[in-house]
Design a protein around this nucleic acid. Structure first.
Lengths: 229, 229, 229, 229
DNA sequence: AATGAATGAGTATTCATTCAT
DNA sequence: TATGAATGAATACTCATTCAT
């Protein structure tokens, strides 16, 4: 939004007064970065309004770019959407690293608690919830994309967690027969309540950090009762 | 929901298959019952294609009714959607009753297992998953509706379960300090894995009954380890 | 206004008369000037059929342009209508200049007679009457527009006339205490009869030039009897 | 509005036998008055929103009557409109009588002044202006109706006035060669300004009674200057 | 006389995408 | 690389009118 055109001309009647000289033009600062600008504009709009309610015109306007310029960078609307959904998958890597670090330490339960808290706070962020809603809601239209998102984003957390749990089991810190299942139990004990609520209640204020911590801790307690020692 | 049309044809592409004779047209008697027909047609299409991808024309065609007839029964498209989402809420009652029955019995763990299996099978049905995806995906456009759905459908299961667990605790069969939280733990231990996967993977074949049972049982085992006796 | 299309065909039903070959289609060059074409087509149709009875489809067909092209040039139907009503206001300027010239001369009554004849002929033209009917008829829907039209078109004539009359009074040629009122008397003595009839009788043949001149002269005679010397 | 039909019997309900339980029915208080109720509802809506913007549904709702009941009383929408426009023509008679009375008296100028005031107040009433706008605006769709309205309503005033003026001229009170033209001059001297403004400015507050009287008096003064003695 | 249900044609407006420059 | 102009098909919703009861 915000002060959208540097020219002082009352936007809208540019049509006729195209201007004589070409040099005078070029209002856009960076010129080249269109791709990124478009990507960001599209992402913001998709997350805010959904896929179908966001038009290419909206995106072009938000990116301050002509519609055709979008098509220079992206084949079609689907691609723009796929870019939003899968474009930041690599960011998960960072989280995966932190995850391992968090879990490490002499006190297993404390480690699990640290990770549980980290994870629930991460997932409950509004933009993550919105993306999740978006992907789920468009799963009918983009089945492949939804599946891929699942594998690449939460799926990688699950499998990494399973590996780490298995390691702890091998070290005798936990008693686990099926590490994948155990990972699922851990995740849903911690995430189930706030994530489910968050998916349905759009306008609800996010739970407070304290509440999230308590939920995480309670989940870990149950997990330890079943898999501890 | 309910078997909407005895014909197995995927409503909507009738246009081409107009039939051989023109005389064959107008099979509908002329009066009555349109409301129900429309409701069912709309429900089927919404679940199949989503809200925005289903047009009023599609619904009219599927219901074999003129478009305006839809508008005599429903104020607008939103109302038709709300009808799908909240129109069958009372069916939950039946489930709630069964639920209580299922839990009853001398062996607590066996009761929980029966319920867990019942619940997971219930929730994993394709039409339930589709409705869930639909509501979540349109939560941005229909926040109130999504919230209401949450309260009336899964919410009622949660609170009923919490009551039943509390009762068991009072009878000394379980050790529970926060029944609502315990109910959430139970639900997500059992449902988390298949529901999460089901939400994202549209085309995936439903898990086999055996697999679901095993998942349910495993969840109950963890629950008992934490809350048992 | 402006002779809009040289073809005498009643624009709009070209569809059927598509011509023999398919290659013949798309006669419009491809670019440019659409704005003007649309404007003219819309004006002609609005004047002929009225606002509500003219559909955007009609306009698009008459302008030989796709419907969406209309929307790239004009925000909505209202804007197209406003363009017709206020788009040619500046043409009044020409008339205002002529008006002053006409009135000038040694013989005041002769000058008034010249102006009266000019004015009545100007106003009684079918397209002016149609526009007047249109604006009045849509005054309920476009109150602001009707008010503006009144101020900018007849209103400017009235006030210019008042100024000129005041000048004549200052020179002792007329006796006028309230120039605005005198201008109104002049205008309605001359215009009242033919304009009122013209507003109601759509199909009536326009009065002959002689009849209009006689009406104008008679009006001036009354005016002079009251305000002369 | 007022019961326009002199027959007190409900048009034609003999066809069917009354049936056994006729007394029990009668949900509507007045039963018979549907025609009138519809007429009034339609009139109010047409005047408020215009012809095209008033739907038969609107009228049915406002009259608290089923849509089909409207069609029992009126052939179609046009007839309902014609009824509004021409249905109260006979009221002009009352005005015509008053008009003659008003003009009578020893002082001609005073009589003309009385009539001028009466007339301008009559015509400037909002509902009269609205009807006039409506008829003018729909003159394209209902040319015959507009012409008839003109003849029957203002036209009768004009011709009656012409007769009365001619009589005065015959009595030597005025000097008039063309009574019809003189009547037009009178009418437009008095009405021109407020009627023209009133037609275009929908929302404008009606002129005060004093202002209208002053306008009327000024018009009469000009008329007398030209046609007096 | 009155109704509730139904209809087919039509309303303004929006869409993702392509073309010539 | 970027654009403004153009498009055809689709969108939700409305209309005056008729049918069977």
């Amino acid at each position: 939004m915000a002060g959208r055109q540097s020219t002082s001309m009352p936007a809208g009647n540019r049509r006729k007064a195209a201007g004589p000289a070409v040099a005078e033009r070029r209002p856009r600062a960076g010129r080249m970065a269109s791709g990124g600008v478009i990507r960001e504009a599209a992402a913001a709009l998709f997350l805010e309004r959904g896929y179908q309610s966001t038009s290419m015109d909206d995106i072009a306007a938000a990116a301050r770019v002509s519609k055709q310029t979008i098509y220079t960078h992206f084949a079609d609307k689907r691609e723009l959407f796929a870019d939003l959904v899968l474009g930041n998958v690599e960011r998960v890597d960072a989280f995966l690293g932190t995850m391992a670090d968090t879990l490490r330490g002499p006190d297993v339960e404390a480690g699990l608690r640290r990770f549980a808290r980290l994870y629930v706070h991460f997932v409950i962020r509004p933009e993550v919830l919105r993306l999740r809603r978006l992907v789920v809601g468009e799963a009918g239209r983009f089945p492949e994309l939804a599946r891929t998102y699942y594998e690449r984003v939460p799926g990688r957390v699950y499998s990494t967690l399973a590996q780490l749990l298995e390691e702890l089991a091998r070290r005798g810190e936990l008693t686990i027969s099926d590490p994948d299942l155990a990972a699922q139990h851990f995740v849903w004990l911690v995430l189930g309540l706030p994530l489910d609520r968050g998916m349905f209640d759009v306008d609800a204020p996010a739970p407070t950090a304290e509440r999230l911590d308590r939920i995480a801790d309670a989940g870990v307690r149950v997990f330890i009762a079943a898999y501890g020692g």
